[in-house]
Design a protein around this nucleic acid. Structure first.
Lengths: 165, 165
DNA sequence: CAGTATCCTCGCAGATACTG
DNA sequence: CAGTATCTGCGAGGATACTG
C-alpha cells in the first residue's frame, strides 16, 4: 500500500494531516492567505501543473477548507476563497513560518508578518506585511520587488531534487 | 519531476515543509513528543515499515530535529530524542492538533493536552495529559486504555485508502 | 533490538493537448 | 480563463528476508 490514510485514527494530528499532509497543499493555503484566489494565479505562483493543482483544489474544497465561488463576470471566472475552517489554519501556517524563520533560515532573514484584516466580509484577503510594516502587494509576493520578497514565482525551472533519503 | 523541493525558495513555510512535508514525519514527531524514543516503538506505534522508518529517522537526524543517542546498555540500544530545534516544533504540532480538534473532529472529541515538562535534562519526555488532567502513560497512547485513547497502534491492518483525488 | 538489502506496486506529479 | 483528458515515470511506501 503506497500512501496510508490516517482518517481512521483517533488523533487530531493524524486526521489533520489527512487533509493537509500533501506536499503542495500547505503552499496553496499559504498563497490563499496571501490573497491568491484564481486558478491561473496559483498555477503561476507555485509553478504547479494544471492537473495537480486542480486535484489539490478539489480536495481542499471537498474538505471544506476552500470554497469555489463563481464570480459570474463576463466569461468564466472562479475564485477559491478560504472558508472559516480554512482561515482557522492561520495558526498552523504561522507556527510553521516562525519555526522556519528561527531554525531553517539564518538570522538575516526578514520574516513576513501576516495579519488578519477582519473587515467582516469573508472573501476579503488578509494583509501581508513585511518586517517594515509596509503592506505587500501581489507584485511583491511574486518576487519582483519588496524587502526579502518571496521568490515563489519564476521557480518553474531550476528546481532541485530533495536530498535522496 | 516527481516531487519538487522547496529548498531554494525564500519562504519559511516552503523551507519548513522541505523538512516536515513528508506524510510520516509529523506523526513520528508527534510520537517523539509523546516520549517514544526507540526504533521498534516507532515502528509498532505507527505501523510503518522498517525501511521507511529508517529513512525518515535518518532524514530527521540530518535536519538536526532528532538526535541519535547510543544508550550503550547491554546489546545495541539507540534512542532518538528531540533536539532543541525539534522541540521548537511543539507549537506547530499544537496548532495542528487544535485545528483538528475543532474542525475535523466533532464536539465530542476529548483533545489531548501536551505540556512541557522542563526538568532541564533534554532527554526527558514531555508529559501528555488527557482532558481530565491525568498524565497518560505509554499504554494509554497505545489505545489500550484511557479516555479518548489514541488508537495509533493495531492499525497495521484495516487501513483505508485516501479518497482518490 | 536496530537496522540493511531487495523487490514490487501504485499514486503523485509533470508535460502536453484539448474544450467551453 | 479554467479547467479536463491522457500519457508517462519516478520514487515513496509496503513486504519480507537477512545481519551484527
Amino acid at each position: 500500500m503506497p500512501r496510508t490514510s490516517f482518517e481512521d485514527l483517533n488523533c487530531s494530528i493524524a486526521r489533520s494531516l489527512d487533509a493537509l499532509g500533501d506536499g503542495w497543499t500547505m503552499l496553496i493555503l499559504r498563497d490563499a492567505f496571501f490573497g491568491v484566489r484564481r486558478f491561473a494565479d496559483f498555477e503561476r505562483d507555485l509553478g504547479i501543473s494544471k492537473n495537480v493543482l486542480a486535484a489539490r483544489l478539489r480536495a481542499l474544497v471537498e474538505h471544506g477548507i476552500l470554497e469555489r465561488v463563481d464570480e459570474g463576470v463576463h466569461g468564466e471566472r472562479f475564485e477559491y476563497v478560504l472558508t472559516p475552517k480554512g482561515e482557522a489554519l492561520l495558526p498552523v501556517l504561522t507556527a510553521l513560518r516562525e519555526w522556519g524563520d528561527r531554525w531553517v533560515f539564518g538570522e538575516g532573514h526578514e520574516p513576513y508578518v501576516v495579519r488578519e484584516r477582519t473587515t467582516g466580509k469573508r472573501p476579503d484577503p488578509l494583509v501581508v506585511r513585511g518586517a517594515d510594516g509596509r503592506a505587500l502587494t501581489r507584485r511583491d509576493l511574486r518576487g519582483e520587488a519588496g524587502p526579502g520578497a518571496d521568490e515563489t514565482t519564476r521557480q518553474r525551472f531550476g528546481r532541485r531534487r530533495a536530498a535522496k533519503a
